[in-house]
């Protein structure tokens, strides 16, 4: 059974249809890149999989391990193993990152019927993950994303991904706002999480990221549809010729 199956999905926001019959199948262990120009519906797809309100699904379905994802609230999807690394992570003043991580992890564990992690066990795990990703422990004591640089925010997303151990990671424009060094650090973090039990969907505008996180499959989106799929070489082709040809195709 595929991990994620998006079948003929149509999505509206208010009066505009953004996705018009999009299909995508992702198996465990695979890394898929979704590329496309601005406004092609890449981010909408990631939001709908994660369950953001304000989107109306008017057709099609999304199956996750064979279960109907569209029937679940965002927190239920998270507990089932869906993780979205945000393009613009929000700031939550006054809430220490450590508190946030612990509250979220335990909420997920509880929803799965697992026992909650007590503070000592949690701290051990959190520090272990932070050290592994070269995230300074001090960052965990600060308010969630408050005053973080662009690079720090992205690292915080990857830290959460490593801590929650989801089976599907969706990375929405994780390269935006990062300089080349910060990008390399973030990509190393992502690559360390590649595993046969986990799939990744990497959404990006530029080919640059895919030099660091090398995908198994590349899909090109235009105007709310996947217009071409191929191997990693497709990304290079795009880099050379641009998106214009696909806009015409759509």
């Amino acid at each position: 059974m595929p991990l994620l199956e998006v079948k003929d999905l149509t999505v509206r926001v208010e009066d505009n249809e953004i996705l018009h019959g999009l299909s995508l199948t992702v198996n465990k262990g695979e890394v898929h890149a979704i590329m496309g120009p601005n406004g092609s519906g890449k981010s909408t797809l990631s939001h709908v999989i994660a369950g953001k309100p304000d989107y109306e699904v008017t057709g099609g379905e999304i199956l996750f391990n064979g279960e109907d994802l569209l029937e679940m609230d965002p927190d239920e999807r998270a507990a089932k193993g869906v993780f979205l690394a945000f393009q613009y992570p929000v700031e939550i003043p006054g809430v220490a990152t450590m508190t946030f991580l612990r509250t979220a992890l335990n909420a997920q564990r509880k929803a799965r019927g697992e026992s909650e992690l007590l503070t000592p066990a949690f701290l051990k795990k959190a520090y272990e993950v932070a050290d592994r990703l070269n995230v300074p422990r001090d960052m965990l004591k600060r308010g969630v994303n408050v005053g973080f640089s662009g690079g720090e925010k992205k690292r915080n997303e990857i830290l959460q991904m490593a801590l929650f151990e989801p089976s599907l990671c969706i990375l929405d424009e994780m390269d935006s706002g990062l300089d080349i060094d910060a990008l390399r650090v973030a990509a190393d973090g992502v690559n360390a999480l590649r595993s046969p039990d986990r799939a990744m969907v990497v959404i990006t505008h530029y080919q640059r990221l895919l030099n660091y996180v090398v995908p198994d499959f590349v899909h090109v989106m235009s105007k709310g549809r996947v217009v071409k799929s191929g191997g990693k070489e497709l990304a290079l082709e795009l880099e050379a010729s641009g998106y214009t040809q696909f806009e015409d195709a759509a």
Partner: peptide, 12 residues
Amino acid sequence: DVLFYCTQRGLS
């Protein structure tokens, strides 16, 4: 956006 961020991480 803040509510969605938190619920995406498993909070109700």
